[in-house]
């Protein structure tokens, strides 16, 4: 009798907990994200210590790494200016007379520390800035002068940013000096793909995000072409793999581009 009661109790516990799991599974993500953001906010201190420790352990030559990173930052800045200059020349050619803004002119850059990267897919970051700091969904995130992500979920003091390498990320880009807009989608393995291009693109060619009114005033570098391979379904077309131009995992701080800051 007692045994039957215990068995029944186990079944009941299992059923209740399974139902709880189903509720979490079927609940809207905006609701369940609050648990994750609250966890990141409450434990941001131990999380950032662990993260820094892990990154420090992985860095064998700190000075060399720092120099390489600085070089990467300058290179990204130069690429951004060169792209802007190219666009300016096009504008002059068209005699439009419209003055283009510098990429970050007049915008509010909200600096944020990276609290944690959710385990598993590794294509998202949680930062310690939120709606209280003027963040909204869809804003671009900078790392080492290059676009690395967009904000995806916001709470009052934390936000989740989706890297452009995340499979759910789709960003309008241009490749090299071409003005044709393409959609770049993340692969989930620290790279993204621009599918169905007519021509093969040289490895190392810069990829720029397109201007997006209200979010980005001028094109900015997002990555470089890592390889071009023929599309499996249409062999006449090319799929381009794009890799970030900065070491995203090593970033401790990022900046969110807030175009219309609340004054």
């Amino acid at each position: 009798m007692a045994k039957n009661q215990i068995r029944c109790s186990n079944r009941m516990t299992f059923t209740l907990l399974l139902l709880t799991g189903l509720v979490f599974l079927l609940a809207p993500q905006s609701l369940t994200n609050k648990f994750q953001l609250a966890f990141a906010r409450i434990f941001r201190w131990p999380l950032s210590i662990g993260r820094n420790f892990s990154l420090a352990a992985r860095t064998h030559q700190p000075v060399k790494q720092m120099l390489k990173r600085s070089q990467m930052q300058y290179q990204n800045h130069i690429d951004n200016l060169e792209e802007l200059l190219r666009q300016e020349r096009l504008k002059v050619q068209k005699l439009s007379g419209i003055r283009e803004r510098l990429p970050l002119e007049g915008v509010n850059l909200v600096l944020a520390a990276v609290s944690m990267a959710p385990e598993g897919l590794k294509n998202e970051l949680i930062i310690n800035r939120g709606s209280d700091d003027g963040l909204t969904v869809g804003q671009f995130v900078l790392g080492d002068n290059s676009i690395i992500a967009t904000t995806s979920d916001i709470s009052s003091r934390t936000a989740r940013v989706r890297l452009f390498t995340d499979p759910a990320s789709k960003i309008a880009v241009t490749v090299g000096t071409s003005n044709i807009e393409r959609i770049m989608q993340g692969n989930g393995d620290n790279s993204a793909t621009i599918p169905m291009l007519k021509n093969r693109v040289k490895t190392g060619t810069q990829v720029f995000t397109r201007k997006k009114p209200g979010f980005l005033d001028a094109p900015m570098i997002i990555g470089k072409v890592a390889q071009s391979e023929r599309n499996k379904e249409s062999p006449l077309l090319w799929d381009i793999t794009v890799e970030p131009v900065c070491d995203i995992e090593a970033l401790n701080d990022v900046a969110v581009i807030v175009m219309n800051p609340n004054k």
């Binding site: 299992f14 907990l17 399974l18 709880t20 799991g21 189903l22 979490f24 599974l25 079927l26 609940a27 993500q29 369940t32 994200n33 648990f35 994750q36 966890f39 944690m116 959710p118 385990e119 598993g120 897919l121 294509n123 998202e124």
Partner: peptide, 18 residues
Amino acid sequence: FAADIISPAMGPQIISFG
């Protein structure tokens, strides 16, 4: 639940682990 808290989406791991 703990695994879900640190993963991209809530729900799948509670059920799987359970």
